[in-house]
């Protein structure tokens, strides 16, 4: 494998993607909402809530959630007042799946641009006439989706950490974030789910000839994360460190299977036949 060629392809794809508004707009807007606007608004809301009605801890659904909570979470909020508990549970726990939606979205939008977009614009043929092997082309394009997805997620995580600690400091009186379960989430599950998004998009790109088509279809993967979000909110699944490690492991196995099929379909013969 010629790694210089691989990084040349990845760099070119990232540069091209960065000049497509349909790609970079969601990459800017979604983290801005999940990382800055929503946490800031919620912390402000909790901190200034004057009555019990405005306090989420008095919500009956939330009360049910608190009743079902496992011991490690009860431990987290021991000794905290209602508002501190609300901040910790909502932003330190229930918000976690948003950090899976982001890498998934970033990786699929760039992969759709890189794989389907290149065929849509008919630039793939010139690329196939270069000495780069099928494996190098594939790896370069996978990295073009993977590297920005993981990096932007890490940057978003750093920004989220700063926002939470800075804005909630007057109420919490200490630097309380990140919680332990976030480390496997950001460092283990998030890269795995980025790869899942890329492999899925490559498979879809064989049948879907346009960037938008591939992006929209691969967007259905968000359902997996929404299921996790719903699971957490209803108390079916709790994202502890151990559960996080297990989810990451399962995702990597699924990644390996999907990548196996993606590699098999990514060859010059098939790419040219299906691109007409």
């Amino acid at each position: 494998m010629n790694w210089k060629s691989i990084f040349t392809i990845a760099r070119k794809d990232i540069k091209e993607a960065s000049q497509n508004k349909a790609v970079w707009l969601p990459i800017v807007i979604v983290p801005a909402i999940f990382v800055l606007i929503m946490p800031a608004a919620l912390i402000l809301g909790f901190s200034t809530a004057a009555t019990a009605i405005e306090n989420p801890m008095s919500d009956p659904d939330f009360a049910m959630f608190l009743d079902r909570m496992p011991a490690f979470m009860t431990e987290l909020i021991r000794g905290l007042d209602e508002r501190q508990s609300a901040i910790m549970l909502l932003l330190g726990y229930l918000f976690a799946p948003f950090f899976l939606i982001m890498p998934l979205m970033f990786s699929t939008v760039i992969a759709a641009e890189s794989f389907a977009g290149e065929r849509e614009r008919k630039t793939i043929e010139a690329l196939l006439y270069t000495p780069a092997t099928d494996a190098e082309l594939f790896t370069g394009k996978v990295l073009a989706g993977f590297i920005p997805a993981v990096l932007i997620t890490l940057v978003s995580f750093a920004a989220y950490t700063i926002v939470l600690n800075a804005m909630a400091y007057p109420r919490m009186g200490r630097l309380w974030f990140p919680l332990p379960s976030w480390y496997p989430l950001v460092l283990w599950i998030s890269p795995a789910i980025s790869l899942l998004g890329i492999a899925f998009t490559v498979l879809i790109s064989v049948k879907t000839q346009t960037f938008m088509g591939a992006y929209q279809t691969s967007g259905s993967l968000v359902l997996v994360v929404l299921a996790l979000l719903a699971g957490q909110a209803t108390g079916v699944i709790y994202l502890s460190v151990l559960v996080g490690l297990l989810i990451g492991m399962v995702l990597l196995v699924i990644d390996a299977v999907l990548m196996y099929f993606a590699v098999r379909i990514f060859n010059r013969d098939k790419l040219l036949v299906t691109s007409g």
Binding site: T8, K12, K15, R121, L127, P131
Partner: peptide
């Protein structure tokens, strides 16, 4: 048959990209 150029890149970036792939 079709020019198959990267239209969001400049002419110089196009040539340098392909030159690098040829080592």
């Amino acid at each position: 048959e079709t020019s198959a150029l990267y239209e969001r890149l400049t002419a110089r970036e196009n040539l340098r990209f392909f030159g690098r792939l040829y080592g």
